[in-house]
Design a protein around this nucleic acid. Sequence first.
DNA 1: CCCGTTGGCGCA
DNA 2: TGCGCCAACGGG
Length: 477
Amino acid sequence: MSKWRVNTEHRFLNLSDITLGTYNLHDSYNTAALVGPLFRELQDRGNLDYVLNIMEPLQRAVINMQARGMLRSREALENYRKEVRDGLNQTDKVILAADPTGELKKPTGKYPNGIGSSQRLGKFLFGTLEFKSTKTTDKGLDSTDQEALGRILKGFRKKDEPHRQVLESIFHRSRLRTIQQRYLNLEAGSDGRVRAQVKMYGTKTMRFAYADPPLQQFPLELRHIFISRPGYLFLQVDYSQLEARILAYLSGDLPSITTFLENKDVHQENACDLFNYSQEDWEQLDSGLPKPTRNFAKSFLYGISYGGEVETMKTKTFCPCPKCAPHMPPTLKLKKTEMKEASDRWHRKHFRVRDWQAEIAEGVRKKHYYQSPMGCRRWIAKPWGPDLDREVKNLPMQFGGALIMNQRQVELDRMEAPIVLQMHDSFLLEVPEDQIDHWASEVKGVMEQPVQGLGDVSLPCDVEVGLNWRDMKPWMG
DNA sequence: CCCGTTGGCGCA
DNA sequence: TGCGCCAACGGG
């Protein structure tokens, strides 16, 4: 059953030919009359060249990409559906058995029980089970999200132990329910291919957005349901640390620029600075810098370099249930004072960043637009405030990254590169097996071309190949 | 910190 | 039935 069904009974379709003709005439005339003023406005606002040179040909590229679509494996999808269904039956059984009031058993409009209602779940956790709430929603209700559940589990005492399985089930359920409802209902064509809607003009930063389904947000663990057709492979080429590099070059942050030019891992380097390690400290370890340390440095860097305060920064909580926990990446927890020190240390070393951001914000505040060196202008009409300030401080990186990607996609489309997906900093292609080497070097070549707006530096890419979208392996050419 | 999409819920 | 809120997922 299609979500988009044409209503052939619509009154508009039953109007007389002369009425429809007259309507169409007016419609066409008035649309055509807009062209002149529209072009003039684009010119006045400094975006005509970008629209003509990039956005116009990009439309063709997007149409081609959308038409290709992605093949979904019916079998993999079915297997996953069953797994999720079984998992939900199990979690719900555990949760409902723990509620003596029976309040959670009452159905909601759509679902046979009320676990999905955050209000009722909150009453269960903080009323019936008497846990202490440590987090509220914007409206002041007790939060039941993953972070809140994680905090409850962290503060567990002996007397709480009987409820451990219930808490873990609630956590596990929230993820499963999202996957089931949002990502397992796929509309595929008769050829088994999913063609998502690509929104070219929807975002503030000129990134693309996908809908029906939202492919850019597809959970990593079930991306394997998208497979390449027989005789073909997926080829993925992605920029390494795209925004971090743009930040370094635009702000003139010499320590980071040096790291990038020497082809070192910037997150590893940041991690050493943040935790006060010397190079020798971690080089002595067998496996190099521990992964959790590097991961922490990575998200920490994004947080602080976009104006985040250490006091309000949070780390993702992973599912603590016995089934998931062994597969989840280890995490690192730091004290607030340690994080504050780390942040100060980072800003001292990368002292250009804050000054440069202040200059950007000041310019935007005066001119009401941000001019990207990558050739497009973003107009901003909102009254200034702390939120807009941070938004503007993020703009050069996210906007700039998107502009680079758009320009490269136009070029790749002209070469008829079989792109099936654009993922913010990477392209996914579906190519014949015997053409992998060809397209790997072609795509990498285009993406690594010098960026004019960035002092002609090249942004390096990594290449991966695989039979499905999840299990991609590095490609050495 | 920034940028997004989406389904369910509960209330007007 | 329309709408704000909540919570989940991803990218940097």
